[in-house]
């Protein structure tokens, strides 16, 4: 269909077009990820840890992270009816190095779940357990924000988030 076009001229056009398109592609790719970040403004596509912290400090004012309390509903290890206070990132599991140790719970993994109070509330994340971590019966796949009344199930242990 282009049989009547001059080959040399076409090649020259293609050569220039290729180089221009190549740079436009790089520009478009970088732009596609730097433009519409809603949470924090970003000047570069990679921030150093220091810059990221400065930006976070500026746009996410530091609110003291409130401690969360959990009511033990059922557990082979912890006594039902007692409460557990979470003030810092806390790992739960059967192993001895966990802050909350569930050594009598055969269905809990050595390292089971992480509970972390952040400024917006208590978060739970599964850290590679075998039998899974459940919130109100739904398996936790990524870090998840908890609300008061949520029931966390780890192995045979049930914990309820208190207001």
């Amino acid at each position: 269909m282009f049989g009547n076009l001059d080959t040399e001229q076409t090649l020259l056009v293609l050569k220039i077009a290729f180089l221009v398109l190549l740079y436009l592609f790089i520009w478009a790719v970088v732009r596609s990820v730097t433009r519409d970040l809603r949470s924090a403004p970003q000047e570069s596509i990679v921030l150093s840890a220091k810059e990221a912290n400065e930006l976070r400090a500026r746009y996410e004012p530091v609110v003291p992270t409130p401690a969360a309390r959990l009511l033990v509903l059922e557990s082979p290890t912890l006594s039902p009816g007692s409460t557990v206070e979470i003030r810092e990132p806390t790992r739960l599991g059967r192993g001895g190095e966990n802050a909350i140790r569930l050594d009598g719970d055969d269905f809990a993994s050595t390292r089971h779940a992480m509970l972390e109070p952040r400024f917006d509330g208590l978060w739970v994340e599964d850290v590679g357990s075998t039998n899974g971590t459940f919130v109100n019966g739904a398996r936790v796949t990524t870090a998840r924000l908890l609300v008061a009344g949520d029931i966390i199930r780890i192995g045979k242990t049930d914990l309820q988030v208190e207001a």
């Binding site: 269909m1 076009l5 080959t7 090649l11 077009a17 398109l21």
Partner: peptide, 16 residues
């Protein structure tokens, strides 16, 4: 653009 250029040089013809 790259494939077209190589193809045109290879065949000597402007094709698709």
């Amino acid at each position: 653009a790259a494939f077209a250029s190589v193809s045109i040089v290879g065949t000597g013809l402007v094709t698709t």
